[in-house]
């Protein structure tokens, strides 16, 4: 065997070995995630309904129907609003929480543990707990409001307050996670760096921008992005807190997909909505990748 041949043989062996290791994971992901998403694109061009027993090709008609329908328009708008407002407050409050938990105080370990609780509890459980908390007649919040103002707010029965409640619960759930990630960044900064910046008279804000942010930026951006995407595709929260009501005021895209796909078996529309959701996710991911490139983060 020539040296060249041996080299080639060795490379081949390395590729085989690589796929032995990586192959199973890739295979499973392709079969249960990548293929289904591609399949969804195909299904979105069908009028496909299990209850009415139809399955026919209709091209883009599902999309035309969705995009020209006022109800779907408002669902799409609310989805974007929901994610944008949630993310903004999660970042803001997450920073607050991170600083709070970074301070020195008695019982810090315990409080840091408590911080994890909203995040490790099944979402559906906290969603029901909040629904019960916000209930118009029997809820805690309504009772307190009654004691203070003399009237019982029906928070889940007005579009604006139901939306606010849903977003608030979402923030409640995800802020601790943000806080945790930012806290990790804070802790990786040597104490001296802060002290010397303080000595130089840098304000809190400046220290934050120039020291804190860079330290945790890669993780915050990555996890923050995935977090946004997960929130967009989550149905547990809406299912538990408002079930999309009153009317369709708090219906988000993912919840609509669930209703069309698994409650009404209207698979054509469900798939078309899915394609729209994938589109939104793709846009957000591209923005994320751009940020990564710009700041030269690595995975």
């Amino acid at each position: 065997m020539t040296i060249h041949g041996a080299q080639k043989h060795k490379t081949l062996k390395r590729y085989v070995l690589f796929f032995l290791f990586v192959g199973p994971a890739l295979l499973v992901r392709t079969a249960t995630s990548i293929y289904p998403v591609i399949n969804t694109f195909h299904l979105s061009t069908l009028n496909y309904n299990l209850i009415q027993q139809v399955r026919e090709f209709i091209g883009m008609r599902n999309f035309i129907y969705i995009l020209s329908n006022e109800m779907f328009q408002s669902v799409l708008l609310f989805t974007l609003f929901f994610v944008a407002v949630s993310t903004f407050f999660q970042l803001l409050l997450g920073m607050g929480v991170a600083h709070l938990l970074n301070a020195k105080f008695i019982g810090r370990r315990l409080v840091r543990t408590i911080n994890l609780i909203p995040w490790v509890i099944p979402m559906i459980v906290s969603a029901y707990a909040f629904r019960w908390l916000l209930a118009g007649d029997y809820g805690l919040i309504s009772d307190w409001a009654f004691r203070i103002t003399g009237s019982r707010p029906q928070l889940l029965l007005q579009a604006s307050s139901a939306r606010a409640s849903l977003i608030a619960v979402n923030i409640w759930r995800n802020t601790p996670f943000m806080g945790l990630v930012i806290l990790a960044g804070l802790q990786s900064i040597p104490e001296e760096l802060y002290e010397s910046a303080k000595m130089d008279g840098a304000s809190w804000f400046k220290r934050f921008i120039h020291i804190t942010m860079p330290a945790s930026a890669a993780t915050v951006v990555t996890l923050g992005l995935f977090n946004i995407i997960w929130q967009m595709s989550d149905i547990d929260l809406v299912l538990g807190v408002t079930q999309g009501g009153p009317g369709t005021a708090t219906t988000v895209l993912a919840f609509r997909i669930y209703q069309h796909g698994m409650l009404w078996f209207d698979w054509g529309i469900a798939s078309a909505l899915s394609v729209l959701l994938v589109g939104l996710v793709a846009v957000i991911s591209l923005i994320g990748l751009a940020i990564f490139k710009r700041y030269q983060f690595t995975l």
Binding site: Q158, G247, H260
Partner: peptide, 20 residues
């Protein structure tokens, strides 16, 4: 269309009854 039609009725009614 069973449940889907029923949902349309509910969402329509609720939107009006809650002053949306």
């Amino acid at each position: 269309a069973g449940q889907e039609a029923h949902t349309v009725v509910e969402e329509t009614a609720a939107a009006y009854l809650t002053n949306q």
